[in-house]
């Protein structure tokens, strides 16, 4: 039986969902040899507006390149959560930035509230690596992509001056994810 993992990363322009998506997709495609298709949607302006990256990982040929129902949804702001939490598989996972996504969610899908930006500030000295904290979590709580492939893709893709801080963020996310699995 072939598999198809649908991943949606959503937030606003400038939060790094497209960069994060690219590293996740390249990790699975180039370093794990899986079939991967990535599309992105963003507003014309560089910052602000909604942004999303959609990644399909499969061992079969991928036709429809957009998310049907997500296995993993990362919602970095409230709008992203409100818009996309309905399109998640029953056994899927929603990871939300706890600083920006509030309210009570009474659905049946597992929601992980993570202080991604706080963790990013703590380990990388900036909130801007929150996207990579999230990727670290994804690698641990799902079998979409491994942390080592993510590290390799990150090193290859990101410019040297931001590589270390994002690696730290990624590694922190991996530890967080590992702890979440235990609880």
């Amino acid at each position: 039986m072939s598999y198809r993992h649908d991943v949606r990363l959503a937030g606003e322009g400038g939060q790094g969902v497209v960069t994060g998506g690219l590293v996740l997709a390249e990790a699975a495609a180039v370093y794990e040899g899986k079939n991967v298709v990535m599309t992105q949607t963003y507003a014309p302006q560089q910052r602000g507006g909604s942004a999303r990256a959609e990644i399909i990982v499969s061992d079969a040929e991928i036709d429809y390149p957009k998310v049907l129902e997500a296995d993993v949804l990362l919602a970095l702001n409230q709008e992203a959560f409100d818009r996309y939490h309905h399109q998640v598989k029953r056994n899927g996972v929603i990871i939300v930035e706890s600083a920006h996504v509030g309210g009570e969610y009474s659905g049946h899908i597992k929601v992980l509230k993570v202080p991604l930006e706080e963790v990013s500030c703590h380990v990388a000295g900036t909130s801007q690596s929150a996207n990579f904290v999230a990727l670290g979590v994804v690698s641990e709580i799902s079998d979409i992509v491994s942390a080592s492939a993510l590290r390799a893709a990150l090193r290859a893709r990101l410019p040297q001056q931001v590589r270390q801080m994002n690696l730290k963020a990624l590694n922190a996310g991996v530890l967080l994810g590992r702890n979440m699995k235990r609880t």
Binding site: K34, V36, V37, T39, Q40, I62, P65
Partner: peptide
Amino acid sequence: VVGHMRER
């Protein structure tokens, strides 16, 4: 879609 889409 095709222009911006990335594939392996």
